[in-house]
Simulated scan of single mutants.
Amino acid sequence: MSKKACVFLAPGAEEMEFVISVDVLRRGDVKVTVAGLPDNAAVKCSRQVNIVPDCSLAEAAQKGPYDLLVLPGGLGGAEALSKSKEVGKLLKEQESAGRFIAAICAAPTALKAHEIGVGKTVTSYPSVESQMTEGGKYIYKQDKVVVDGNIITSRGPGTAFDFALKLVDMLNGKEKASEVAKAMLLNY
């Protein structure tokens, strides 16, 4: 049975993190649904690129459960994810079921806002490190990708391929991730 992932797309999302995650997951034989916040209209990302989601967040929620929820970064996108009650509800359900949750760049702040992965080791974009460490809810590392149980976090645009390949690895194994990396002329 094919693994399923839902990638959230909020206004202000970092395009590279979003597109690389979706692309690599699909190359890794993961069925990806792109869920737009607040609806299925085109989303203007952080570098003014417009991307059209597959469906609204509400519609995507009906297609679950997912093996993986992915939160791309970008400051505006992370803020929108942090403020969304619907995102919070989906994250809490995902966490309580022990399924994977991944966040890159500024998006780990949305995990903190919804109290997801408390007590786990995480990473983020350097400018939000102090937010992540404030209050002592997380253990912080500056590694490119950090996996702690069902929580996967990463640093930013430059680590997007490492992040996406780790997601394929977690869902479909290291061999599949290596096969995808090799086809893209990357090492994994």
Rank of each mutant, 00 (worst) to 15 (best):
M1D: 14
K3N: 03
C6K: 04
V7G: 00
V7A: 06
V7S: 00
A10W: 02
E14K: 01
V19T: 14
I20H: 00
D23L: 09
V24M: 11
G28F: 04
G28S: 05
D29C: 06
V32I: 12
T33A: 11
T33P: 09
V34L: 08
A35W: 00
D39V: 06
A41N: 12
A42H: 08
K44A: 07
K44E: 09
S46N: 06
S46W: 00
Q48P: 05
V49C: 07
V49F: 07
I51H: 06
V52I: 13
P53N: 10
C55L: 05
A58D: 06
E59C: 09
P65M: 08
P65L: 12
P65E: 07
Y66H: 05
Y66F: 12
L68I: 08
P72H: 04
P72C: 15
G73H: 04
G76S: 13
A80F: 09
L81Y: 11
L81E: 04
S82A: 15
K85Y: 12
K89D: 14
K92C: 13
E93L: 08
E93Y: 13
E95R: 02
E95L: 10
I101H: 06
A103E: 00
I104S: 01
I104L: 10
A107C: 04
P108G: 14
P108V: 04
P108F: 01
A110L: 03
A113T: 02
E115H: 12
V118Q: 14
V118W: 13
K120Y: 08
V122T: 09
S124E: 03
T133Q: 00
G135H: 02
K137I: 11
Y138H: 07
I139R: 14
D143H: 11
V146F: 02
I152C: 06
T153D: 08
T153R: 00
T153M: 02
R155K: 15
P157Y: 10
P157T: 14
T159W: 03
F161C: 07
L165P: 04
K166M: 15
L167V: 03
D169H: 14
A181E: 11
K182E: 15
L185P: 07
Y188G: 03
